[in-house]
Each structure stands twice: as C-alpha cells, then as structure tokens.
C-alpha cells in the first residue's frame, strides 16, 4: 500500500514536471502560453498576499499598487537607463519592499477593517502618483517599449521563451515562501494572526514581524511587477488599480488562504477560468461573482479544502497530500468547523 502510493506520487510528480517543462511545446498556440505566463505572475502575487494575509493576518490591500511599483521600477530603469531585466528584477523587489514597509507602518496602530482601508488608501495614493507624476512615469499613457530580456546573448523575446523565466521564479518563490513559513519566522507570523497579545507575551517582536510580512509580500509584488513589465513591454497605471488587488485576493481565497498550494491552484484557476468565460461575454463577471460567493459561503477554505474533503471521504492520495502528522492536525481542524 505504502509503496504503491509512493509510485503513484512519483508518477504524478514526474508527469507534472514533464508538462511544466515542455508546456510551450504542448500548448496549441502562443496565446495559451501567454495566459499561463500571466497565471505565473499572479501566483507570485498570490504567494505574497497569502504570506501577509493568510499567515501573518496582515491586510495588505495595496498589493496591486505595489505590483505597479515593481513594474514601474523595472520599466523605467530599462527605458531610461537601459538596464537589463536581470538587474531590474532585484531592483524592483527592493524598491517595492521599501514602499511595502511604509504601507505596513500603519499596521502597528490599526487592525482589521481599519488596516484594510488604510492599505487600500495608501494603494490609491501610489496609483495616483503613478498617474500624475507624468515626467517620471509617463502619466496615464504609461511606459512603453520596455525591452524583453536577453540571456547571455540569447534573446528571450517570445512568450514561449519567457515562460521559462517565470517558471523558475514561481518555483523559487514557492520554495522560499515555504522555507520562511516552516520555521520560527512563520510561527511568529501565525502567532500574531492567532492572538496578537499572547504573541507579545511570548517574546514575539510583533512590530518587526508585521513589517517583515509587509516587506516580503511587497518584494514578491515587486518581482511580479518586473516580470510583467518585461513580458508585456508596456505598462500603464490602470492595470495596477485596486481591482488588481481584488483579483489577487480572490484567486488566493478561491485556492485557499493560508495554504501555499492554494496560491498555486487559485493563481492558475482564475486567469484560465476568465479565458473560458469570455465566451459568455457580459455574463462573464456575473458568473465570476456568483462563483466567488459560492466559494465564500460553502468552501471558505478554497479549492485546497475541497480536495481535502474529497480525499477524506474517498481516501484517494493526491501528490500534494500533507505528511501524516499534518494531516491529522487538519482533520481535527475540519471537525472543529
């Protein structure tokens, strides 16, 4: 039995790895690759939001604006100074991370819905700066003709080629997030989310970890921004309005807030779902809205919780099954609800 599950897991993992590795060749057209590239960018944003909101309990609703900060940093460094993607990516993470620290400062004073409106407000302020500082940002017209990257003389100038950059960043992002959350930093985050006062009494430097959660999530937004700027070659402020934050939040919750696999599932599902829903035109967003409500009302844990429920009832072992002890914990969790 045990051996069999290991083999099944290995096969599923191998299959998934092969599909991921050769996706641009399997895809029917370039547009499909583009959708998956965007999904990858959204996964990175969702990982960041999940870390801040799902784990540390900090409402970072400036996520879309911070994505914009990253995109503009990369876009402007490229068009104004001619710097390449490889420098712009870390630069965008640093700049977005710094702005993220500022956005996070109010979390030391206000919480829950008050923090939500403050971060929304600061996001709006960032967006308005992007629109109005025309000399720097190009205003409402945005920044165009951003150059795609070049890898040691090999031009990464198509969606198919860019796919591999995104794949690497997504995998790295996932592993780094998991590593951060696995040990004491992650535990301090969760302690703050579960009980702020008790966390303080346990010696958790709450202010430090709150700001850290904002900085990390903002740095992810920055990375997503640099990727987007160099993939799309054109950016404008309207892309980074509050609705982009909502989109990322929606995908994170559809996948599963507080579960990194949830970010991946949600980040893949929603952009693809959106493409399929294009067929029904105007009804697209109505269906979208209704699906959100169904998820919230009936499966608040998102798709990840749904698979867990299915697994518990049918005893199928998915490759992403948690380790035995974690599983036990989560079962008690479900029965608690």
């Amino acid at each position: 039995m045990r051996k069999k599950t290991i083999i099944i897991r290995a096969l599923l993992f191998g299959g998934a790895a092969l599909i991921l590795l050769f996706f641009p060749y399997i895809a029917q057209n370039r547009y499909q690759v583009h959708i998956i590239n965007m999904a990858g960018i959204y996964i990175i944003l969702s990982l960041g939001l999940n870390l801040a909101m799902g784990y540390a309990g900090q409402f970072n609703l400036a996520m879309g604006a911070l994505w914009g900060v990253g995109a503009y940093t990369a876009g402007l460094l490229n068009t104004r100074l001619g710097l390449p993607f490889w420098i712009n990516l870390p630069a965008a993470m640093i700049v977005a991370g710094l702005i993220g620290a500022i956005v996070g400062l109010p979390s030391l004073k206000v919480r829950s819905h008050y923090l939500a409106i403050v971060t929304i407000g600061l996001g709006e302020v960032i967006n308005i700066i992007l629109i109005n500082e025309e000399k720097l940002t190009g205003g409402a017209l945005g920044v165009s003709r951003i150059k795609m990257p070049n890898f040691f003389g090999f031009p990464i100038n198509t969606d198919e080629r860019f796919y591999y950059i995104i794949l690497v960043v997504v995998i790295l992002g996932f592993l780094v997030t998991r590593q951060i959350l696995k040990h004491h930093i992650g535990r301090s985050f969760r302690a703050i989310r579960d009980d702020y006062q008790a966390a303080k009494a346990m010696g958790v430097n709450t202010a430090y970890y709150q700001i850290l959660a904002f900085i990390i999530s903002a740095a992810y937004a920055g990375a997503a921004g640099a990727l987007f700027a160099h993939l799309n070659t054109y950016i404008s402020p309207d892309i980074f309005e509050f609705k982009s934050t909502l989109f990322v939040m929606t995908m994170t919750m559809v996948g599963g807030m507080g579960s990194l696999a949830g970010s991946v599932v949600g980040g893949l599902t929603l952009p693809i779902l959106q493409e399929y829903l294009r067929v029904i035109k105007d009804w697209q967003l109505v269906v979208y809205g209704i699906s959100i409500m169904i998820v919230v009302l009936f499966v608040p844990g998102g798709v990840i919780e749904l698979t867990r429920r299915m697994r518990n009832s049918r005893k199928i072992h998915w490759p992403w099954s948690p380790k035995p002890e974690e599983e036990k914990l989560e079962e008690t969790n479900v029965s608690e609800n």
Partner: peptide, 13 residues
C-alpha cells in the same frame, strides 16, 4: 493558546 497551532508549535513560538 494559538488556535491554529499544535501543542508543540505553541511551545516553539
């Protein structure tokens, strides 16, 4: 106690 955590994790915090 931290409600989302195991007994061990609570102590580790």
């Amino acid at each position: 106690l931290f409600s989302s955590m195991t007994v061990l994790d609570n102590v580790l915090v």
